[in-house]
Design a protein around this nucleic acid. Structure first.
Lengths: 342, 342
DNA sequence: CTTGTTATTGCAAACGTTTTCGGAAAATTG
DNA sequence: CAATTTTCCGAAAACGTTTGCAATAACAAG
């Protein structure tokens, strides 16, 4: 069984014809007589011949494989994106090599080089948080490998991009709170050197100002994980008495803050309404169910892959790049119904 | 820039020597004079030469790539496993091609064939729910490709396997409830044609009987998703008055049932204690935080990859197969503290 | 100045395909 | 029957490597 797979040469030898004839017979080349075709094809069928993809790739310099580089697979948003990528890739006959950087710059560099070495037809990247040098991205381009960024894009590199509109998403979330009657809204924000942190905060402020509400620095707390909520519990509780709404930069932060509030006698959403960002599966499970804006990971993945295919198949114009922006949609649940007892 | 990558031949031509010399110089072969080595190496460095992995693989029939076939990436357990696989693969210089079957048998067949065609060095599989024919797995073995199953194993095929001990996990969960004082425990179970459904139910019954408690069929409700809990809400509520504990086959079912109970005036864990299975991130977020048994996805992934490497590098004995079983551990939180008010 | 060693290098085959080009046999035409 | 066209097939190169073997050069010993 460990015997080597059947090759075209094997078939040729057994049938007493040349490899070229076998090759042609297998792909219905008109030069080959019906008789020989029949002979070759049935024999190939019988021995379960399968072409060696490596040899094909080497000859055609086309691997039908794309590379995906992401910070973390174990993250609902990213795995959703991968799912979208995979599904359109599959439809077009592409395989996907997935590389996980774990937010490690060095690994990002190595992974990209490995993909180039393996001659992938294109690469989809979501940048690590710790990447501040972009030579490795340039290297991809210099090697002529099509690349598109999604979500965590690199502004210094000109490529196709697919992103969620964080600014607008935050505006939508904030305006939703305002429409529910909130006037004094707190924002739990991500670090400002990250694009999502910056954009979501600015979206928040924009919505507030549009409604002549104050966007006080004091009501903006740097806090973007479950743990950091608990760490800043005192600070948050100090402010809790003077607010009626919270917009959190992501769902797990939103849920954590609801739990802190509840443990300290506040009622969500009666006293304080809460909205998150991201719409992972946890929003539905939270108590009360969390209103949030939905980040469309699946279609972001699809869109990114489609853009990439455009460049691989050269239907897209070389050197012209597109940016696709997906605006999140509000998913209204219970947590934002200010005044309502649950 | 789109110019083809530098090859050994290019270097040879420019330097006026033969490709073989270049090849040897690059890998410090003793036959090559220091002078030539120096010349070649610095030149290769300068032009940023990178060997073509395809050509290498073709020649050596070793791709340093493994294939992963899983039902769904967007699932905390599976993405955790992948993460474990990836990390040890990376350490050993392997790339991973990931194929998602979406629980589709046809796609599983195609994916496996594609991996064989691409001459991956080994394959890790978690079977789709809808796979009842196993010829494609046999095909992998007949092609001499090492394969190990994880989690959703195929009993009909003899290979290495890595699984979580569902039976024992369920016993642990159930015994925990009993130790908290529960005597009338309901089990929300998965379909019995699935191994996890069967094993977890049997583990549940085993623990009950060990403590001289009844394992009534009537207290076993077929219900293994959030949606199915809501669909069977009436049936569950009918029984709710006569039970003091629930062991659910997975976390989201456990959380859903807590919500149903709470909405109907029951107090968890005061009136009814609840334990789940799986320990995804949602357990922590539930209200009250869910006690559950932890399925160690990350180390399952690591173990599977290590077994595979054993066969790839032939340190493992051919034809002898190992089954690694990981026993889940109890993670005790609030939901199981019978009698306690929160 | 042979002969034998040793140090370097190149040739060619191989991995499994595809494809250009040309050639032999067969079929057609006049 | 000769000339021409068609039909069918094979040789060989190419994709980018590695490697066994042969070849050359240099150099020392006799």
């Amino acid at each position: 069984m460990k015997s080597h797979p059947i090759t075209i040469k094997d078939i040729a030898r057994v049938l007493g014809i040349s490899p070229s004839t076998v090759s042609r017979a297998l792909k219905d080349h008109p030069d080959i007589s019906p008789k020989t075709k029949q002979l070759v094809q049935t024999f190939a069928e019988k021995v379960n011949y399968r072409p060696n993809a490596l040899a094909l790739s080497l000859r055609s310099s086309k691997t039908n494989t794309i590379g995906i580089v992401i910070p973390e697979i174990v993250h609902h948003f990213f795995s959703t994106v991968i799912s979208g990528i995979e599904d359109v890739a599959y439809g077009k006959g592409f395989n996907a090599i997935i590389c996980q950087t774990n937010e490690n710059y060095q690994r990002e560099v190595i992974d990209l080089q490995a993909l180039i070495d393996n001659r992938v037809d294109g690469i989809l990247v979501s940048m690590s948080k710790n990447t501040h040098d972009f030579a490795h991205f340039q290297n991809v381009q210099e090697n002529g490998v099509p690349m598109v960024f999604f979500d965590r894009i690199c502004e210094a590199i000109s490529t196709d991009r697919v992103i969620a509109d964080d600014f607008e998403g935050a505006r939508i979330a904030t305006k939703h709170l305002i429409s529910k009657g909130c006037k004094k809204i707190m924002h739990l924000s991500a670090p400002q050197h990250l694009l999502i942190g910056k954009n979501r905060k600015e979206g928040f402020c924009s919505a507030m100002k549009e409604h002549q509400l104050e966007c006080k620095e004091q009501f903006i707390v740097k806090c973007d994980t479950r743990e950091s909520v608990f760490a800043k519990e005192d600070e948050i509780l100090n402010l809790a008495g003077s607010i009626d709404g919270i917009f959190a930069v992501n769902d797990s932060t939103a849920i954590a803050v609801m739990q802190v509030l509840q443990r300290n006698g506040y009622n969500v959403p009666k006293d304080i309404a809460v909205v998150g960002f991201g719409d992972g599966p946890i929003a539905d499970i939270a108590y009360p169910p969390l209103s949030t804006v939905e980040q469309k990971g699946y279609i972001i993945g699809q869109a990114a892959m489609n853009l990439l295919i455009g460049h691989i198949e050269e239907t897209a114009i070389d050197g012209e790049f597109e940016t696709k922006i997906f605006t999140p949609e509000l998913v209204e649940r219970t947590s934002s119904q200010l005044g309502k007892t649950i």
